[in-house]
């Protein structure tokens, strides 16, 4: 029932100068899961992803298949199957959509069994709109298409764990829905996802497991449904909702209850 653990951090710490931004984070991502991290601005969500990607110096243990040490370069992490779609997308604006995608497979060039053409067709099957616009330069795309391109570019590297930083940032609600649905679809293709979203409601609806971060620490973790019902989460991140339909039903439905952790534990 429970899938194998794909990635795990233990006591992950990041310092900006003398200020510690992550205070010993331990998170766990299972194969084929969408794990979401919700939290306010400045909670350290992006810092977490940057540390996992190797963009920031960090201490603590990160376990990932075929990683002998923690001091791997960004390129080695990509080759191991980690991929980050940053908040800023970082597309190659003046280059055509197809070149953007092909460069997404740069780390796999020369790999046996990897075919850039085949991966390209898979991405086009997932996002047909990109195929229509394959000759257009990336900076002529709309916001939603850019996010699709960023996702597609990441998928070209055949990642095992895809980390998405605010994929819905700056998108219209309908487009956000489309993107989130696409992310959920990726899980069915066997990609595990670490999703960071300002839009906590959408993220919790699609995720399997959730962590709540506050000022560099995990405050709460548990199955996404349970976290979404936690009163503190409802108050802080989901906003007022209509009253719980069955408020006194807690004993009847023993949903796995979120574990509360105190700061720094």
């Amino acid at each position: 029932m429970t899938a194998n653990i794909l990635a795990e951090t233990e006591d992950l710490r990041v310092c900006y100068g003398r200020v510690e931004a992550l205070h010993g984070l331990s998170i766990r991502i299972r194969e084929g899961q969408i794990v979401t991290v919700v939290g306010a601005n400045g909670a350290g969500k992006t810092t977490l992803l940057s540390a996992l990607m190797g963009l920031l110096p960090h201490t603590g243990r990160i376990a990932f298949p075929r990683w002998p040490t923690a001091a791997l370069s960004v390129e080695e992490r990509i080759r191991a199957g980690l991929c980050l779609v940053p908040e800023s997308r970082d597309l190659f604006g003046t280059m055509p959509v197809e070149d953007n995608l092909r460069l997404g497979g740069f780390s796999r060039r020369g790999d046996r069994g990897y075919s850039a053409g085949q991966s390209l067709e898979e991405v086009f099957a997932l996002f047909p709109r990109l195929k229509e616009r394959r000759r257009q330069t990336a900076n002529t795309l709309s916001g939603g298409e850019r996010q699709m391109l960023a996702l597609g570019r990441a998928l070209m590297a055949k990642p095992k764990l895809l980390m998405l930083d605010e994929p819905s940032l700056g998108l219209a609600p309908l487009v956000t829905k489309e993107i989130i649905a696409a992310v959920a679809g990726l899980r069915d293709h066997g990609v595990s996802i670490l999703l960071i979203e300002q839009n906590a409601r959408a993220a919790l609806a699609v995720a399997d497991h959730a962590y709540v971060m506050e000022t560099g620490s995990i405050m709460l973790e548990g199955p996404a449904e349970a976290v979404a019902r936690d009163p503190r989460v409802v108050d802080s991140y989901l906003g007022a909702r209509k009253a719980d339909p069955e408020p006194s039903n807690e004993d009847a439905a023993p949903a796995p209850h979120p574990r509360l952790r105190t700061a720094g534990s």
């Binding site: 960004v74 990509i78 080759r79 779609v85 997308r89 970082d90 190659f92 497979g105 070209m156």
Partner: peptide
């Protein structure tokens, strides 16, 4: 065009 984007694709 984009140094960080390039780094993120390896």
């Amino acid at each position: 065009v984009n140094r960080r984007g390039a780094q993120l694709v390896g």
